[in-house]
Amino acid sequence: MHDILERFLFDHAAVRGESVVLRDSYAEVLARHPYPPVLARLLGELLAAGQLLEATLKFDGTMILQLHGKGQLKMAVVEITSQKTLRATARWEGEIPDVSLAELLGQGGRFVITIDPDQGEPYQGIVGFEKGESVATIIEHYMQRSAQIDTRLWLACDGKIASGLMLQRMPLEGGSGAEDEDAWPRVQKLAETTTSEELLTLPPRDLLHRLFHQEPVRMFDPATPVFKCTCSRERVGSMMEMVGREEIDSVLAERGQVEIVCDFCGKHYHFDKVDVAQLFAGQGVQAGGSALQ
């Protein structure tokens, strides 16, 4: 079973949904850093949730999910694009035991979702969370409060596969779906019978048939999420310009070169004195240099 994202719609109900399984792309994320098991599973859940949410948005651009905290987990970031590419990373301190999300983040933990369209201004929403909440419940509450969309989410991750199922209630505005107002509580009850084992082992269409075989469900063409990092020598150069010439020169004086490692994919970018001089002279970065895995 390879990476797959399935979209579906209930023909006689104002309910839509998505199901996702991530294997290869998730493995690519984990190959970049030696994540503790609890963080590996957390990133998997965030990746699955991000793919499910992005599939409901009609825009070209990037969606970023972030968890910030003051505990051992400082930050977890997932980026999903409208091209179905993904990447993720996390920063933490010390050895992390298998504890709850609230314990990982400590006091003041927050969830941030950013929508960054290719055209137009970015939108950002920030929510805190309560003890006992999971990635799924945080996103459910966020969608209800910020977008006023009833959303249910089921996520599973075992460190090798990340998967999820999402249902959303659409507004009853007449036409298709308007005749079955009891559909939302009914399909929720059906979805609640799923198990983590089923989410991780069943192909999405088999899972949907198991859950909703008595409902008229319309399937759409599946998509294949893939790992892809958007870092580049040019983007790193732009970041260095934002840091400023004085600080960059101090690094050059101390080390003889500037080395920057991408947190998402692990590539190393090196800039010597000539590269830095050209960059701050407005000539951009040269195609040379190195970007080593």
Rank of each mutant, 00 (worst) to 15 (best):
P97T: 01
C231H: 09
S290F: 05
P34L: 15
V15K: 05
A76Y: 05
I96G: 01
G94H: 10
K189G: 11
G164K: 04
S100Y: 01
T224F: 09
L22D: 03
L39F: 07
P204L: 12
E95T: 13
L22N: 01
E95H: 08
A76W: 07
D182F: 12
S238V: 10
G164H: 03
T89Y: 11
Y123N: 10
K228F: 06
D158R: 03
V251T: 13
I113D: 01
R169F: 02
T195Y: 10
K160S: 13
D221I: 07
G71A: 07
R169Q: 09
Y26F: 12
G177M: 01
L172N: 11
G244M: 13
A253C: 04
G164V: 07
P34D: 15
P34C: 12
L155E: 11
T230N: 08
P36W: 07
R210T: 12
V261K: 06
D249F: 11
Y35A: 08
L73P: 05
S176K: 14
L202D: 09
P34Y: 02
L190F: 12
P204Y: 08
E198Y: 00
I248V: 15
I113S: 12
E79C: 04
T62C: 00
F271E: 00
K70Q: 11
A40M: 06
K131L: 07
L5F: 00
Q257K: 12
D150G: 08
V251D: 15
A281L: 09
R16V: 01
Q148I: 09
V127L: 13
E247A: 15
R91A: 02
C229S: 11
A147D: 05
G282F: 10
P225Y: 06
P34E: 15
V135M: 10
D180I: 06
L5P: 00
R235V: 03
L39V: 15
G71Q: 08
A27K: 07
